[in-house]
Design a protein around this nucleic acid. Structure first.
Lengths: 209, 209
DNA sequence: CGTGGCATAGCGGAAAACCACTGGTTTTGG
DNA sequence: CCAAAACCAGTGGTTTTCCGCTATGCCACG
């Protein structure tokens, strides 16, 4: 049985190139090509492909929105994102959304076919470049230490766990005033403006949990 | 020039095993072995190794604390964490702290030597198992979509950016009361108790930025 | 064409957070 | 052992958030 594929991309150059690639692969059958999200959604009401090659930058809606909707409505359709953006955050987001693959547009024929076969087999696929980049990302961050005292870390932890000053005070057997004081120090040290900022920085800098 | 190595681990079995491995590698010279953090810190005041093999679970202090301090005081020392824990969060934390490698204790001789050589050459090294796990991690999350309306997402974003209700209202040309209402919806939908919870969930679920 | 979800707006009151002080005790490191 | 840093506690006041109400206009979907 051949793999039924749909392509959505508003650049004819890309779609033509893809079509040419799949021409030589009888196991991969392109059942439809669309240049915008709306057309795709309409077609999906009628037929579902095995795999959908989806561009991130469509004229009528973002890839995020589109992918999100498709995943929700038609969970059986496997989505491979086709993008020229290698921004890690974006890659992560799409994968966490539930896409099965993420291909860079400069991928060669072999890689693209490999990706489709892998995803069709129930695996995931990530452009090798991106794999490397994600690993590097982990090392790079080297966040500024942000010198917090033991007590401050402890209280920051509890703040992110949604405890109020009063609750924290009870837990640590100190006065709510003291908790408040630590809070002020934290705001200053982390250069935050309010609780939201504290939690944000705490999570971003891995100071908690 | 040979690589000067220090080992810190409170399990004789582990250190003995390591020593045996390095016996066969003249390019790697073990200059000292410690069984706790304090002894190590004392020695570092006198001599610095090229690379430090550091156990995560020491009797007197956590690997986090120790690594953090060493990185701050002696940034030239490269640290490879030696741990039996493959908990991804912990791995990430150590790497972001600035450690150059993370080895699982069940790694074979070849891998360990490879790691040391890589780190000595200025690269990073991660146990292959962990590399795979981190990539899988990205796909797995499949977070519950958390159905937020456009407005709610927008407001959640601004909350995490430390704006107050009043400021958000000004920005969106709506009443502060309306912002407050959306906030209540958000608290309910995300099952958060307060602003801290909102920000935490927003970041964890990648709903912002 | 109605029903339900969304966005808007408002009110009032309680709770929590924010801010700037002062001042005492304990811990820590050189 | 001394000084600095951290921790604790309090006063007093302002701002913001939290929560439960009510209520209206809009629009999409069946």
């Amino acid at each position: 049985m051949s793999i039924k594929l749909m392509i959505t991309d508003d650049h004819p150059v890309v779609t033509n190139g893809l079509l040419k690639i799949f021409d030589g692969h009888p196991a991969i059958q392109v059942s439809a090509v669309f240049s915008n999200g709306k057309d795709l959604l309409n077609e999906l009401k009628v037929t579902l492909p095995d795999i959908l090659l989806l561009d991130m930058n469509l004229p009528d809606m973002t890839g995020m929105e589109l992918a999100s909707e498709i995943i929700k409505k038609y969970p059986s359709v496997k989505i491979i994102i086709l993008s020229s953006s290698d921004i890690i955050i974006q890659v992560k987001k799409m994968l966490q959304l539930g896409c099965q693959g993420y291909l860079l547009k400069d991928s060669d024929d072999v890689t693209i076919v490999k990706a489709i076969e892998a995803v069709n087999a129930g695996e995931q696929f990530l452009s090798p470049v991106l794999q490397q980049q994600i690993l590097n990302d982990l090392f790079k961050k080297k966040q500024a230490p942000a010198e917090l005292t033991r007590r401050e870390k402890e209280i920051l932890q509890l703040i992110t766990e949604e405890f109020t000053n009063q609750e924290i005070a009870d837990k640590l057997f100190i006065s709510p005033h003291t908790v408040d004081n630590h809070r002020v120090s934290l705001l200053s040290k982390l250069q935050a403006k309010n609780t939201a900022g504290l939690v944000r920085r705490a999570l971003e800098q891995g100071l908690v949990k």
